[in-house]
Nucleic acid binder design. Sequence first.
DNA 1: TATTGGCGGATTGTCGACAATCTTCTCTAT
DNA 2: ATAGAGAAGATTGTCGACAATCCGCCAATA
Lengths: 231, 231
Amino acid sequence: MALIDDDLRQPPPDAAIVDRVVGAVMEQKLAAGAKLPEAPLCEAFDCSRSQIRRVLIVLAERGVVALHQNRGAFVASPGAEEARNVFAARRAVERAIVLAAASRIDPGALEDLRANAHAGCAAQARGDRGESIRLSGLFHLRLAEAAGNAVLTRFLEDLVARTSLIIGLYGARATRSCSEDAHEALVAALAARDGARAAELMDTHLDHIERLLDIRDAAETPADIRGVFAR
Amino acid sequence: MALIDDDLRQPPPDAAIVDRVVGAVMEQKLAAGAKLPEAPLCEAFDCSRSQIRRVLIVLAERGVVALHQNRGAFVASPGAEEARNVFAARRAVERAIVLAAASRIDPGALEDLRANAHAGCAAQARGDRGESIRLSGLFHLRLAEAAGNAVLTRFLEDLVARTSLIIGLYGARATRSCSEDAHEALVAALAARDGARAAELMDTHLDHIERLLDIRDAAETPADIRGVFAR
DNA sequence: TATTGGCGGATTGTCGACAATCTTCTCTAT
DNA sequence: ATAGAGAAGATTGTCGACAATCCGCCAATA
């Protein structure tokens, strides 16, 4: 029996909390603009306020939450320009990732991706939107890991989370997060070690997702009046 | 006369402190691995410990400092693999930046870059290493701003700072931070709106810098023994 | 009825104090 | 003389309390 780790739970490490919040954003459990008060977060992860505060700083740095002076933390709500910039950045980063992956991916990782693409296709076929989104994000992240560049992987983690927010904000209801066929085609190109083709497919894939969205700044709300004169 | 902002100085905002530290790293005033105790930082920016602590978290998130449990903050010291990954990421990010800049840069920004490249060349000619490094970094960052993608610009800010650390760690004494000719050639390609050529030049430029370095993991130092068994 | 002003509760920001850990110096024993 | 144990000092991590600010509600007035 464990003498340590008794029934009083120890608080999770910072990174775990960050991942949980990012995960919630990616699965669209947290909508863009949602308030994130400190007290509920403390209870949810039962930890101290200092820890939550630290986590919120990290999330802000990643562009997933926005901190407003004396008003607290909110899930980020990217405007039209930022949304387009995120997609452009993703194209740049993922292009480099597939090029690297094409030349160094191992059979195990390849099979992993294939299974993921297949499962995603199935989830989408049976209308399981949440699982489909989750698997789609996971596909891109696993691919990044297979490319073996931790710096690019880190960049992509942030971009994927922000993309989820963007899809939630600008996505029409018909939007499927990822056409899973594209993932399977990508796996095929990677299996053939055809980097150029994989890069082309990835670019088309991301462009397709962006085109399915209606990225336009919303008409100014009463709240914007505040922003105009803020500071 | 100013009634506000009297002679008791208010502490600078977090972002200002972050920029100062990043700037010090870029100008090689702070060597990789240097310890950053909280108390001296508090005095330097005369601010509270909580603020410094917040800043250190941000810097850690950017990969510029490393936080060790109960040991404090240190300027990051990228290993060989991380160093190569940073260069690969820079190639990906800067390629996207020059492609965007080639089609949308305005004459003013172009002239700004030209002047920077010229000044950098002069600084290098007269052996002013510090100024040369500073201008070189500035060139890439200004170019990123001209590309108009804040997300990519942010990525590049981190990468440039980390590159400075890498050059400090692996650069032979003969290493010039940037062959400034490359910057002038880049400006010419941008002026001609030749995105493909600019991308090619940038890739060569970064590759050249990387090749001038001797990126290999050092033999394990006594200090590393601690790290191996830490935790 | 709609807008303004003000009050109370709630939330956030900051500071100081204390506990935990690490580092360094000293002393001792082999 | 060197290695190891131990104590003193310094540094970091965490918590709680207090001040400052914001939000929602209610009344008052035009």
